[in-house]
């Protein structure tokens, strides 16, 4: 096969693909117009919220999958074995700290954690990064500070409380699970040569990293889309006030705020403002629960995690996060306030 023939074939394919894209772009409005009588006003509102969640999340997911691709191609199991402390407790603390300095959002962190765990990072260390990555980073701290009227208290409690809760959860996971809990085979020996550590050229590896990111994007993308759609439906059809008609008291308001954090699936950079808008309805500790719980786990995130990890593990993780955040909020309230 001559090189010239191959490259002209590829070029033709590219042009062909662009033509298909142009056709798609041109005919979709026409196609959707013909079914527009089926669309209710509320569905159009839902669609707007759905797309806005995606438009907001996709850049972060792309950065996430590129990072995951980078880890795949450039970081070897050898590196990781050297970096992660042998001692379990040191490893737990380190993973939470790494997450805290690593600016990620909850949708971008899942592919990164999956890749790390696949590369031999212990599961609990992966969980540490998963929890603190989206919860503690400069953007989140700044937005929390701003949302609560430029008072440092709430931002401080969010960081401090969140970090403590993350340590507790990671510790529990480390005693409960020994294996990596990933779905599917650990690694495919046939393709070993395509991974980091082999002496391939830089450009070969860069290409591999990109290709890898593409596959990861399509893998993660569908779960992100499903999650965003459910969260948008929730916002469109379920009034928030129906949640606080049935009761009162700290336990109740904390559960409501945590439920909201879960189902609204807001980006951790924006949720502080939503949390703050509830300050005339609920006590501050319940809002703190909202702020800590949401970035650790939410609906969209759970669906993405389910695609990566075994159901049993995701369920246990979800329950653990819920129990520990809820418990520590109640304890904090009765001890200090």
């Amino acid at each position: 096969m001559s090189r010239w023939l191959y490259s002209s074939l590829v070029n033709t394919t590219g042009v062909l693909a662009l033509i298909v894209v142009v056709y798609f772009v041109t005919y979709t409005p026409w196609l959707m117009n013909s079914v527009s009588f089926l669309l209710s006003d509320s569905f159009i509102q839902l669609n707007t919220i759905f797309l806005s969640i995606l438009i907001e999340a996709v850049p972060f997911v792309l950065i996430g999958v590129l990072t995951a691709g980078f880890i795949q191609m450039y970081i070897t199991e050898e590196h990781i074995r050297r970096w992660i402390p042998k001692n379990k407790y040191k490893a737990i603390i380190m993973s939470c700290l790494v997450g805290a300095v690593f600016p990620a959002c909850e949708c971008g962190i899942v592919p990164i954690v999956r890749r790390l765990v696949k590369k031999g990072v212990p599961l609990y260390a992966g969980v540490g990064i998963l929890l603190t990555g989206p919860l503690i980073n400069p953007m989140v701290i700044l937005s929390t500070y701003m949302a609560f009227g430029n008072h440092v208290t709430m931002a401080g409690l969010r960081v401090g409380g969140g970090f403590t809760a993350a340590l507790l959860i990671t510790l529990s996971i480390s005693t409960l699970f020994k294996s990596n809990q990933l779905k599917g085979p650990l690694a495919d020996p046939v393709h070993k040569e395509a991974q980091a550590g082999t002496n391939r050229s830089f450009s070969y590896k860069a290409r591999g990293m990109m290709q890898h990111s593409i596959d990861e994007f399509f893998d993660m993308g569908k779960y992100l889309i499903i999650g965003a759609f459910i969260a948008a439906s929730f916002q469109t059809y379920i009034p928030v006030k129906s949640l606080y008609l049935f009761g009162d008291g700290l336990m109740y308001s904390t559960s409501v705020m945590m439920g909201l954090a879960y189902f609204l699936s807001l980006c951790s950079e924006a949720d502080a403002f939503i949390g703050a808008s509830f300050s005339n309805l609920f006590p501050s500790v319940s809002i703190l629960a909202f702020l800590i719980y949401g970035p650790m786990i939410d609906l969209k995130n759970t669906i993405m995690l389910l695609s990566v990890f075994k159901i049993k593990f995701v369920t246990v993780l979800l329950l653990l996060i819920t129990a520990i955040v809820f418990g520590s909020i109640i304890v904090t309230q009765s001890l200090f306030l």
Binding site: T28, N47, T48, F50, P239, K241
Partner: peptide, 19 residues
């Protein structure tokens, strides 16, 4: 839906759900 449905401005039906 992104190409086919015009984006809407949020209205009072959403306002009622928001608190």
């Amino acid at each position: 839906t992104g190409y086919g449905i015009e984006p809407a401005t949020l209205n009072s039906s959403i306002a009622g759900n928001k608190g």
